[in-house]
C-alpha cells in the first residue's frame, strides 16, 4: 500500500507575547506521527484541545501567522512545499472544516459546493437536502445543514485525500452514518481519509485505524478492532457496561457480527462493534472507551495539562492509575501487539 500522506515527528508551537518585549513559545504539538495510505481511513480521536484540529490545519497550510512547525509532512513521498500545496489543495487534497463559519457569507451555498449543476443536484440529494437549499445563504441554514454543505463542497471534486475535521457534530445519527459511509466508499475506491473526530463510536465503526491524541502527541495507534475487544471478534450483541438506568435504544437487534480481524473495516452498518475494549494499550485510550455513554459513562478525573505548563515526563501521568517513578521520563513510542503505544507500563 502506498502512503498518500505521511506526517513525521510533527511539532507545532505558537509564538506568544508576555507584555511587549518578552516572546515565548507555546508548544502545542510534539512528536506527532501519522500516516494515511491509499484506501485507508484513519481516525484521529482524543481529548478536546489535544491539537487534532491544528494537525489538520497544519496539513492544509492554513495555520495562523504565529505558528512555527517542525518535522515533516510528505505527500506521496514528496515534501509538502507551499507550491505543491497550492497545486493540490481543493483538488487532490480536500478539507471539511470544523467551524461552521468557514463558508462565504455572501455567496449562495450551491455556488460554494460546485458550479457543475448535475453534480450539485446529485450531492444535495445524496445528503437529503432539498434542492432549494442550494439557493440559500449560509446564515439561513441550521447547524446540521451547514455541516452537510461543507461535506458536499469537499467531496465535489475527486480528492485523493480528504481531511475531515469534525464533520459530524450537529448531525443526527442517521446523517452522521450516511456521511461516514460516503467517506468509507471513497476510501474503498482508493482515496485516503483522515478523520478528526471526538465521536469515537463512529470512528470505531468506520475507520481502519485510530490514532489517539493526548496533550498534543499520539499516545497510541490501534486498529479500530482493538476498541471492540481483545481477539478482534465482534461481540454478539452489546456490552452495556454497568448498564444502570440505560434504556436499550437502538442497534440491539443485530445477529452475531462478522467473525474476526480483517473484517474490521466493513461499514456494513448492521451492528455496533462494542466489547470490553481490552485490546487497547494506553491508559488514556482505555479511559476514552470507558467514558462512552454506552460503556459505563465513567468520568476519569483530572484535565489535560495546559500547553504552557506541561509535566516533564509522561503527559498522562498526573491522571494515570498506573503511574510510577518511571513515568517521570517521557515514554518513547514502541510497537506493541500490532499497534504503537507511548507508555512505560502498557502490556
Amino acid at each position: 500500500m502506498n502512503n498518500i500522506l505521511e506526517v513525521k515527528d510533527f511539532s507545532l508551537a505558537f509564538a506568544m507575547y508576555d507584555g511587549v518585549f518578552h516572546r515565548r513559545m507555546l508548544n502545542v504539538i510534539t512528536n506527532l506521527n501519522i500516516t494515511v495510505g491509499e484506501g485507508e481511513m484513519v481516525a484521529v480521536a482524543g481529548s478536546s484541545g489535544s491539537g487534532k484540529s491544528l494537525l489538520a490545519h497544519g496539513i492544509m497550510g492554513i495555520l495562523p501567522q504565529n505558528a512555527v512547525t517542525g518535522g515533516s509532512v510528505l505527500w506521496r513521498g514528496q515534501p509538502m512545499t507551499p507550491k505543491l500545496l497550492k497545486k493540490i489543495r481543493g483538488r487532490a487534497l480536500a478539507f471539511v472544516p470544523q467551524s461552521v463559519t468557514y463558508l462565504d457569507p455572501l455567496i449562495r451555498v450551491g455556488r460554494q459546493i460546485t458550479r457543475d449543476k448535475g453534480k450539485l443536484g446529485e450531492l444535495i440529494s445524496r445528503y437529503h437536502l432539498k434542492p432549494e437549499v442550494a439557493r440559500l445563504y449560509p446564515h439561513e441554514l441550521s447547524g446540521g445543514m451547514t455541516r452537510r454543505i461543507m461535506i458536499c463542497a469537499a467531496l465535489a471534486g475527486s480528492p485523493e485525500l480528504v481531511v475531515a475535521d469534525e464533520p459530524t457534530p450537529g448531525l443526527s445519527r442517521h446523517l452522521a452514518e450516511h456521511a461516514m459511509k460516503h467517506f468509507r466508499e471513497m476510501a474503498d475506491a482508493g482515496a485516503g481519509v483522515l478523520l478528526v473526530t471526538h465521536d469515537i463510536e463512529l470512528a470505531i465503526r468506520f475507520a481502519d485505524r485510530i490514532a489517539v491524541f493526548y496533550g498534543g502527541t499520539t499516545v497510541e495507534t490501534a486498529d479500530a478492532a482493538d476498541f471492540v475487544n481483545g481477539d478482534g471478534r465482534y461481540p454478539n450483541g452489546r456490552d452495556g457496561g454497568d448498564g444502570a438506568g440505560v434504556g436499550q435504544v437502538t442497534g440491539d437487534s443485530q445477529d452475531a457480527g462478522g467473525d474476526g480481524a480483517g473484517a474490521g473495516s466493513e461499514p456494513d452498518g448492521t451492528g455496533r462493534r462494542q466489547g470490553d475494549g481490552v485490546g487497547l494499550r494506553h491508559p488514556y485510550s482505555k479511559a476514552l472507551w470507558a467514558a462512552m455513554p454506552q460503556n459505563g459513562f465513567v468520568p476519569t478525573p483530572g484535565v489535560q495539562p495546559y500547553a504552557g505548563d506541561l509535566p516533564a515526563g509522561c503527559l498522562y501521568a498526573p491522571r494515570c492509575p498506573m503511574r510510577t517513578q518511571a513515568c517521570d521520563v517521557a515514554p518513547e513510542p514502541r510497537p506493541l501487539r500490532g499497534g504503537v503505544v507511548s507508555c512505560h507500563h502498557a502490556v
Partner: peptide, 11 residues
C-alpha cells in the same frame, strides 16, 4: 457536549 471528547463529556 457535542464538541467535547467522551471523557470530558462524562465528567
Amino acid at each position: 457536549s457535542t464538541m467535547l471528547d467522551v471523557v470530558t463529556q462524562a465528567q
